Computed example of a mutant assay.
Amino acid sequence: MQIHDQAARLRREADAVLEEQGLLAIARPLGETFVGGSYFYDLMTWRDLDLYINAPDVSIEDYFAFGAKVTVRFHAWKAFFTDSRTEGRGLYWGVRLGDTRSGAWKFDIWAVDATQFEEASAGARALVRRLTPETRDAILHIKDAYWSDPRYRDTITSASIYAAVLDDGVRTIAEFEEYVSCPGSGPQS
C-alpha cells in the first residue's frame, strides 16, 4: 500500500474514533479540544491520537470520571493517569486499546491550561507550515519504518524524526539510521 494511502486510511479511522465513536464528545464537556500530533500534521503511520483539552480548572475527580468514560467507551486494555501540573504539563491520561506495536490505538490525552493549550496548537500550526511534499514524504517513510521498532517512543520519537527531516535535511531511512547512530552526522552537518 502506498504510504500516503495508508496515512489517509489511518486518518479516516482516527476521524471515526474522534467523532463517530465519541472521543471528542466525551472530552468537550471539560473544555475546548485540539487534536494535535501526527493527526494534525497529516503524518499518521500508526494508531496514535494526541488530544489536548483546555481545562485549567478540572478537578482530579472530574478528570478521573472522564478517564473512566473513555476507558469504558473504548474497552481500554490499559489506562494510566499522571498529574504533571507541578512540571507545567497538566493532567494526563494514557489510554491503550491493546498492543500498540501490533496496531492498537493509543490515546495521549492532556487537560492543560489556556497557555499550554495555545502553545500546543500554535506549535502544531508552525510545524505544518514547514512541511513540503518532499519533507512530508520523507517523514512518512521514516516513521513507517520505525513505529513498530522497539526504540520508537524510547530513543527514537516522532519529534526526533521531524527534527532530522526539517532541521537537518535527512530524507531517507538510511540517512536517518546514520543520523541516530551518529548524532550530528546528518546531510547538513
Score class of each variant (00 low, 15 high):
D83P: 12
T45K: 10
A55E: 08
A68C: 08
T71W: 08
F66M: 11
F81Y: 14
A68Q: 13
N54S: 04
L51D: 00
A68F: 12
F40N: 05
L49H: 02
Y41Q: 08
A68P: 05
F80W: 13
D62H: 10
A79P: 04
T45I: 14
W77H: 10
P56G: 05
D48K: 03
H75E: 09
E61Y: 12
R47F: 07
D50W: 13
M44V: 04
V72P: 08
Y41A: 10
P56T: 12
H75D: 09
Y52N: 01
G67S: 09
T82N: 10
Y63F: 15
V70H: 01
A55I: 14
S38M: 09
W46E: 00
A55R: 09
F81E: 02
A65Y: 04
R47S: 07
T45Y: 07
T45V: 15
V58N: 00
R73F: 11
L43M: 03
V72I: 15
F80V: 14
T82P: 03
F80H: 09
Y39R: 03
K78Y: 09
I53S: 01
D42F: 11
D83L: 13
V70R: 01
N54I: 02
T45L: 15
V70P: 02
A55G: 09
L51T: 00
K69I: 01
S59G: 11
Y39N: 00
T45G: 04
G37W: 06
D83S: 07
G36N: 07
Y63G: 01
P56E: 10
G36E: 06
F80C: 06
D62S: 08
W46R: 04
F34P: 02
T82V: 15
D83V: 14
V58I: 15
D62G: 05
R73D: 04
I60W: 07
R73S: 13
G67V: 06
A65F: 05
Y39I: 06
A68S: 12
F81W: 11
V70E: 00
F64L: 13
V35N: 03
T82D: 10
D42T: 07
D42C: 11
F81V: 04
L49F: 03
F74P: 06
A68W: 13
K78A: 05
S59H: 11
D57I: 14
I60P: 03
Y41C: 06
F81K: 05
T45F: 11
Y41G: 07
Y52K: 01
F80N: 07
A79W: 05
D57F: 14
T82S: 08
G37A: 06
W77Y: 11
E61W: 12
R73V: 09
A65E: 08
F80E: 13
V35F: 06
F66Y: 09
